[in-house]
């Protein structure tokens, strides 16, 4: 078991309120990713779960047990740090076994567990090396092994892949997903990278300024964002949002990959645009388009020359409507009619 609950949690550093009132439920065995821009409070939330930071107000529960007064070492959790935080003066073996020694695990069992974990993460050859003699990827594995060997209820990871190069990061992402499947333990992962969040999570907690904007599965977050912020945070290039097109401060959004240069039968709107820039990515092209309503992004396999004028088609089924407060509102028949009349002009 490894459920986590944060109830009415507030965190304040001196006079600076980082988190006002956070309520979060993390299910047992889930891979939950806390994602958001720098300073949104995701790392602070993680650190409060670990116990390295105390909440100013509110309660934290692990497995239904209040842990506010439990020291980090006794919360039955393990953490992988952004900079790995390996003990530089110890060998890989000592790094991994250190937590077990503190727990007074007998030497034989300790050796067996260290050996077992090292085989899983592929560190057996490096057991007697110091961290300074390892590559970034190997250090990352040591940090993982150190967390795994403790067999915790919860794994907490604070941007563990951000120090790796792009290729290794992609590889480690896959390995972490596999590891989660194998262990079945609760993973809480902090990142500012939406690709990491989308590819690894089964639940994404999108944060902004210390509160949760949306908590849902990656698919749900992509298909049904509840606000302009959520809509634009997920997806590259970000969702096009026409802020001045509709009356009453309403905003119209559609994803760059959903608009088309090809005429369509489904109910749609048409916009006249001019191609400003063109980025060839191989399988698809990203266009920046100038329109009456500002710059739009398009992601398509359709080829059109730079500077050319064209019509683009956006189906109603791929549209999102947001109110003046930037919250999502229903795209009902009245709204459709309104949009139709605006874009027919």
């Amino acid at each position: 078991m490894g459920t986590i609950q944060l109830k009415n949690v507030k965190k304040q550093f001196d006079k600076d309120v980082v988190i006002e009132n956070l309520n979060l439920d993390i299910e047992d065995g889930s891979f939950t990713v806390l994602v958001g821009p720098s300073g949104c409070g995701k790392s602070t939330t993680l650190r409060m779960i670990t116990g390295l930071d105390d909440p100013t107000e509110g309660d934290i529960y692990i497995d239904g047990q209040k842990v506010n007064d439990v020291t980090p070492g006794k919360r039955d959790i393990a953490m992988v740090f952004q900079n790995y935080a390996l003990y530089p003066t110890m060998t890989v073996r000592q790094n991994i076994a250190f937590g077990l020694e503190n727990k007074k695990v007998p030497k034989e069992e300790r050796d067996r567990r260290v050996k077992e974990i090292c085989e899983i993460v592929g560190l057996t050859e490096y057991l007697d090396r110091k961290p300074s003699k390892l590559s970034g990827g190997q250090r990352q594995r040591v940090a993982l092994a150190r967390a795994m060997v403790k067999q915790p209820k919860v794994f907490l990871m604070d941007e563990p892949l951000s120090n790796l190069d792009a290729k290794l990061r992609a590889q480690m992402r896959v390995e972490l997903i596999e590891l989660h499947k194998k262990l079945g333990t609760t993973f809480v992962y902090v990142t500012h990278d939406q690709t990491e969040a989308m590819s690894m999570a089964d639940t994404i907690v999108l944060m902004k300024d210390g509160y949760i904007v949306q908590q849902s599965s990656p698919r749900e977050l992509y298909n049904n964002p509840n606000s302009v912020y959520a809509a634009q945070f997920i997806g590259t290039p970000q969702m096009n949002v026409l802020r001045d097109a509709l009356p009453d401060g309403k905003m119209l959004g559609f994803r760059p990959e959903k608009l088309s240069f090809r005429e369509m039968e489904a109910p749609h709107i048409t916009l006249r645009v001019q191609v400003a820039t063109k980025e060839m990515l191989g399988s698809e092209i990203i266009y920046s388009l100038n329109s009456k309503y500002g710059t739009l992004m398009a992601k398509t396999d359709y080829e059109i020359g730079g500077g050319a004028e064209a019509d683009i088609y956006v189906p109603f089924s791929s549209m999102y409507l947001f109110g003046q407060d930037e919250k999502r509102i229903e795209l009902d028949d009245t709204a459709r009619e309104q949009i139709k009349s605006v874009f027919a002009e």
Binding site: L52, P72, F81, Q82, L86, Y87, F98, K103, R146
Partner: peptide
């Protein structure tokens, strides 16, 4: 680095 002490704390080190 502070994070090394934090890692030790998480390892329940006296």
């Amino acid at each position: 680095p502070v994070s090394i002490y934090e890692a030790a704390e998480l390892d329940n080190t006296p």
